[in-house]
Design a protein around this nucleic acid. Structure first.
Lengths: 336, 336
DNA sequence: ATGAAAGCGCTAACAT
DNA sequence: ATGTTAGCGCTTTCAT
């Protein structure tokens, strides 16, 4: 049987309230009593039961985190941010993976609520307004992070995708590229961030006086990028395009691998830009030039926001926009 | 205010015991009462408070997981395994990152204990026997996973590193390599898995009648592997060695990158083998030939073991050994 | 089959 | 400054 506050009180020869007081430093305790209590706690190896504590205080200092897939590299980075600053604010992390399943997102939300978490961070890749409604309805503080979709109005932390996209295009143009293709996601384009990224791309092409050249893919994996290589092989070797701007690092990396395997030299034959700056981006060769999404910071800022809400120092509504940066590495050639 | 079991009871016109009974299906309830209770639950949107439940049942169905760094790719894979099969067994995951800090490991262990977790999985990369002793002393079911160290006797899930290493050497020899170097970790070699890997390497070299050629590094990152490139550049270009077997994928990848950047062609000029099969291994070019450590399975099996212990179906002591596999890709040349 | 009541380990109001 | 007590939301005897 675990040792409880009663055991400590008995051993120290004081009441349980006194013990509670020294543990929580909630009220003054005489030096004498404090000494005895501390001694008893050490002798017995007592550790307060957080479950019992939460029950009475109605606080859990646990943040529930529902992610798409913890095995995914950018997800792990965000969770790292959540975890690290979470612990600074004294929060623990209860982690669930939904694997892109709508129902799982909702089920886990309920579960976390039952676990009396103080707040929820939902990191999703799918379109699921129901869970947002549910979260709002539950009136639990939450942050909603979606890599692709613009879902409803909800507190979130993100970058400005239009501006990011503009940075890429400005850079490509500065490096002398004119025939630039963009690889976008075909699915739900109007309600995803692709809408904004595409806008910047189209504006830049219009500025150049060139017709946009858009490839559509479905999926965000490296193999999708690789397969894209087959489809556009001719366009590349024809020299119809000099640069490809990909909506995801994964697509860009798949494409780079395709090129490597088919003797197309990046960046000499073709320049490639990614989006995200996942960790592999700096390890593949050539190193990928890409937009850096500050994953760690997104997690970190989300927790900070939540902790402010929980301390009543902030309202829930605002969405936070983090600065973007273009990381220039080796996958784009200056053809001026 | 959240709705409680009392509210449900009142609304249904029954006692809270009856409500509890229908929730838990713990005792027979008349169809009539059950109907009313279910109705009330739905009307009120009632969800039992898991905190209160845990307090009385003294069960938490939460598994505490302490990892080194959730941002690390292999860690994320293991956690994925833990999380996914954990949820199948109805466990939730409370996650902490120690970032290689001894004290953090101990602090989090205490914290998790206070949170009344049902079991703990400790995933460490450092040498810390204290935390194992503490865990044993607390008599909480736990699994101890350490990527490098052989720490004390403790329940664990791992691969047979000697056998794995032997597989690598057999393969290299089969492919005609004779002058094979091994890159090992210089730190604490006698109490780490390097001892076993090295043994297999040395035995193979003895079998070949060649003197072992061992490079020592300190650290498990890609940049450590890259820096190793500088040091052994001459050995490679001298053709003194035809193959390098690296103790970590990261080292191998760093080395491959060094070669790429310095016009040494892998595998034509030099064959490289890794260890681990982290996700990048199949994305870099040339694709890395390596030992597959089944990270996901290590996590999955750990949870299964724990769940058996918690159900009194297994003792804590045994260590589980998972099968190893050599993944043959493109970084080794057949020079027969 | 059902309800009353005790109690899980703790905090916090109240009393002294 | 300290002790007594109620009660957090729930499960589980124990009666009935």
């Amino acid at each position: 049987m675990a040792v409880t506050i009663k055991d400590v009180a008995k051993r120290a020869g004081v009441s349980i309230s006194t013990v509670s007081r020294v543990i929580n430093e909630s009220k003054p305790v005489s030096p004498e009593a404090r000494r005895k209590v501390i001694k008893a706690i050490e002798d017995l190896g007592y550790r307060p039961n957080e479950i019992a504590r939460s029950l009475v205080t109605k606080k859990s200092n646990v943040i529930g985190v529902i992610v798409d897939d913890i095995g995914s590299s950018y997800v792990a980075q965000i969770v790292r941010g959540i975890e690290e600053v979470g612990h600074m604010y004294n929060y623990d992390i209860l982690l669930c993976s939904s694997y892109g399943d709508k129902e799982a997102e909702e089920r886990f939300t309920q579960l976390l609520l039952q676990k009396q978490v103080a707040a929820i961070i939902l990191l999703s890749e799918i379109y699921n307004e129901d869970v947002i409604s549910y979260l709002k309805y539950s009136s639990i503080p939450f942050v909603y992070l979606n890599k692709y979709y613009n879902v409803l109005e909800s507190p979130t932390v993100r970058i400005n995708n239009y501006l990011a996209s503009k940075k890429v295009m400005d850079f490509l143009i500065e490096y002398g590229h004119r025939r630039i293709a963009y690889v976008t996601q075909e699915k739900d384009i109007d309600i995803t961030i692709e809408k904004h990224k595409l806008l910047a791309y189209n504006e830049a092409m219009e500025y150049l006086g060139n017709t946009p050249n858009i490839y559509k893919v479905d999926g965000h994996t490296i193999s999708v990028g690789y397969e894209l290589g087959y489809k556009i092989h001719k366009d590349i070797t024809n020299n119809e395009i000099t640069a490809i701007y990909c909506c995801d690092d994964e697509i860009a990396i798949g494409l780079i691998n395709y090129c490597y395997d088919n003797n197309i030299y990046v960046p000499d034959d073709l320049s490639i830009v990614g989006y995200g700056n996942i960790s592999i981006a700096s390890y593949i060769r050539p190193k990928l030039t890409t937009i850096m999404e500050p994953y760690y910071d997104i997690g970190a800022v989300s927790v900070r926001k939540l902790s402010k809400i929980l301390a009543n120092e902030s309202s829930e509504e605002e969405t936070i926009e983090l600065p973007v940066q273009l990381v220039i590495r080796d996958s784009v050639k200056n053809i001026n």
